[in-house]
Design a binder for these strands. Structure first.
Length: 390
DNA sequence: TTGGAGTCAATAGG
DNA sequence: CCTATTGACTCCAA
C-alpha cells in the first residue's frame, strides 16, 4: 500500500507561451478558445489525479510562497542542484526566472493565476518524496550526454537530447521555436542584438525622474529619452520594469515585516531533510547609491495611509495572515497541499537577519506613494473593488 | 493605448 | 559550471 496518493509528478507541457490559462474555475462554462489549427499541443496532460496544473492552481488553497521558496532553496543547495535544472525540468522556466522567483516571491494574494503556477509546482515538487533523487538522475544524465557530445562527435551541435527518466520532465519546448520574434537578423547572424546596458548615470537620472513622476507622460518620456540619448522605447521599458520591481520590493518587505513581528521567533521544527546550515540570506542592499547622504533619516511609516480614498483600510496589505474564515478545502488537493512537511502553513517565518536600517527603502516608499496618488487621481471617481480573495 | 504581470535571455560576477 | 540582474517582449485587461 503506497502511502502517497499519487507518486507524483507527471508534469504538464508548458509550451512556451502557448495556451493561456483558462479561467477554469467556477464560473465560465467555458467555450474555450477558438480552434487553432496552427498550434498543436493541446496539452492533454494530466498527471495528478487527472488534473492539469491550471486546475490545481485554481483549486489550490493559499500557499505561503515565502516558506515554499525558502524550502526549495534549501533543498536545492543542500543537494547541489542548480536553478537551471530545477527550473527547466520542474517549473518550465529559465534560470533567470527561477532565481528571481526564489529570491523575491510575491505573496500569494498578489499573484495572478499564472503567477501562482510555479509555486504550485514547487509545492508539488516538495511533496514528492523522490524529488531530489529524480533531479539528481536528470543531472547525471545531462552530464553524461554532455560528456559524450563533447568527447566523441566534434562538429555537431546538439542541444538537448533527452532520454531522461521519462517521467517528470516538463517537456519544455525545444529551446528554439519561440513565438517571440524579437530578433531581426534574417540574413546577418552577426548583427547581434545590442542589449542595451544603461550606464549608472543614466539609471540615476531615470530614478530621479521616477521619484518625481512614476508615470511620466509621453512627452516627458520623449524628453528624457532625448536628454539621455536613449530610445524612447528604452525609457518606456525602463519605467515599466522599474515600477514593477519597486512594487515587488515592497511586497517582500511586507512579508518580512509581518514575519518579523508576530511574536514567537523562529523556532520551528522543520524535520524534513534539512540539516545543513541554512544561513539567512542577508541580501539587502539595493545599490542605489549616490554620494548624497541625503541628510536625515527617520522612521517612516508612510505608505498605505494616503491612499484608499475612503475608509477601507485595516491594513489589508498583509499576506497569509489570518484569513480567519472560510477556506475552501479540496479533496485530493488537500492531500497534496495538506501539509507535507511543515511547509505551507503561514508560519511565522524566520528571518532573523534583517536589520532595521533600511535607507533607500524610504525613497522607494515615497515613490510608491506617488504611485498611489497617481492612481487615485487617475481613478478619480471610480472606486476600486479591492478584495483579496480568501 | 497604457499599465501590470510574467518571462525570456543576455550578461555580469563568482 | 552557477546565480543575480535587467532590458525587452508577450498577454491581457481596463
Amino acid at each position: 500500500a503506497p502511502e502517497s496518493p499519487l507518486s507524483s509528478a507527471e508534469e504538464s507541457v508548458k509550451s512556451q507561451q502557448e495556451e493561456q490559462m483558462c479561467r477554469a474555475s467556477i464560473q465560465e462554462p467555458s467555450e474555450t478558445s477558438e480552434s487553432q489549427p496552427g498550434t498543436p499541443l493541446p496539452l492533454p496532460l494530466p498527471g495528478h489525479g487527472g488534473l492539469s496544473i491550471q486546475e490545481m492552481v485554481a483549486m489550490s488553497p493559499e500557499l505561503d510562497t515565502y516558506a515554499i521558496t525558502k524550502k526549495v532553496k534549501e533543498v536545492l543547495t543542500d543537494n547541489n542542484l542548480g536553478q537551471r535544472l530545477f527550473g527547466e525540468s520542474i517549473l518550465g522556466l529559465t534560470q533567470g526566472s527561477v532565481s528571481d522567483l526564489l529570491a523575491r516571491p510575491k505573496p500569494w494574494h498578489k499573484l495572478s493565476l499564472k503567477g501562482r503556477e510555479p509555486f504550485v509546482r514547487m509545492q508539488l515538487w516538495l511533496s514528492d518524496p523522490r524529488n531530489v533523487e529524480k533531479l539528481m538522475d536528470m543531472k547525471r544524465m545531462e552530464k553524461k550526454a554532455y560528456m559524450k557530445r563533447r568527447h566523441s562527435s566534434i562538429g555537431e551541435s546538439h542541444s538537448l537530447d533527452s532520454g531522461l527518466s521519462g517521467s517528470d520532465l516538463i517537456q519544455c519546448a525545444s529551446p528554439q521555436h519561440l513565438s517571440q520574434q524579437q530578433q531581426q537578423q534574417p540574413q546577418q547572424p552577426h548583427l547581434k542584438k545590442p542589449r542595451v546596458v544603461l550606464a549608472p548615470e543614466e539609471k540615476e537620472a531615470l530614478k530621479r525622474a521616477y521619484q518625481q513622476k512614476p508615470y511620466p507622460s509621453p512627452k516627458t518620456i520623449e524628453e528624457l529619452a532625448s536628454q539621455l540619448n536613449l530610445k524612447t522605447s528604452t525609457v518606456i521599458n525602463w519605467f515599466h520594469n522599474y515600477r514593477s520591481r519597486i512594487r515587488r520590493e515592497l511586497f517582500i518587505e511586507e512579508i518580512q515585516a509581518a514575519a518579523g513581528e508576530g511574536g514567537s521567533p523562529s523556532a520551528r521544527a522543520g524535520k524534513s531533510g534539512g540539516e545543513g546550515d541554512n544561513s539567512c540570506d542577508g541580501t539587502e542592499s539595493d545599490s542605489t547609491a549616490e554620494g548624497r547622504p541625503s541628510g536625515s533619516e527617520e522612521r517612516k511609516r508612510l505608505l498605505e495611509s494616503p491612499g484608499l480614498s475612503h475608509r477601507d483600510e485595516e491594513g489589508e496589505g498583509e499576506f497569509p495572515s489570518a484569513s480567519g474564515t472560510s477556506r475552501p478545502r479540496g479533496g485530493i488537493i488537500d492531500s497534496l497541499f495538506g501539509i507535507p512537511e511543515s511547509v505551507s502553513v503561514p508560519t511565522a517565518a524566520a528571518t532573523p537577519c534583517r536589520n532595521p536600517k533600511d535607507s533607500s527603502l524610504r525613497k522607494k516608499k515615497a515613490a510608491n506613494l506617488n504611485n498611489i496618488i497617481h492612481r487615485l487621481e487617475k481613478a478619480a471617481n471610480r472606486d476600486e473593488p479591492h478584495e483579496w480573495e480568501f
